[in-house]
Amino acid sequence: MTAVSMTVNGKPVTADVDPRTLLVQFLREHLRLTGTHVGCDTSQCGACVVHIDGKAMKSCTMFAWQADGANVTTIEGLANGAALHPMQEAFREHHGLQCGYCTPGMIMAAVDIVKRKGHDLDDRTIREELDGNLCRCTGYHNIVKAIAAGARAMK
């Protein structure tokens, strides 16, 4: 067992875990933050994307102890209290989700895109930047629209 402590969604957490515990398992099984999902086992689908020290990363390809001391934000911690984050609101407004399974990872990836690429995002940029997130429902059309709108709303 190994001790890990980190800040998750603004709250300090400490636990003893098997070194094999992936960050996504730690979030889902130990902290019961089940909004972060697992959609593949080859680090491709992006359903597990969270922010670690402000950067989007795949929580399925990282041991919990690698995030020791880090500041982790999951989909549950994105909104400020009851008010939705503008990107969450944009996904709802533009029908950027259907089954909802890829959605947390998509939204976390989208916020990261805005951080890196700014608030005025064209169609091509968004599509290229979504390389690490798979969706099987939407054909991406409305996800792209939602991200463009969410990015503007984050100004």
Partner: peptide, 9 residues
């Protein structure tokens, strides 16, 4: 390489 999340790590 990979995608933005992979490139962060």
């Amino acid at each position: 390489i990979g995608d933005p999340h992979v490139r962060h790590v």
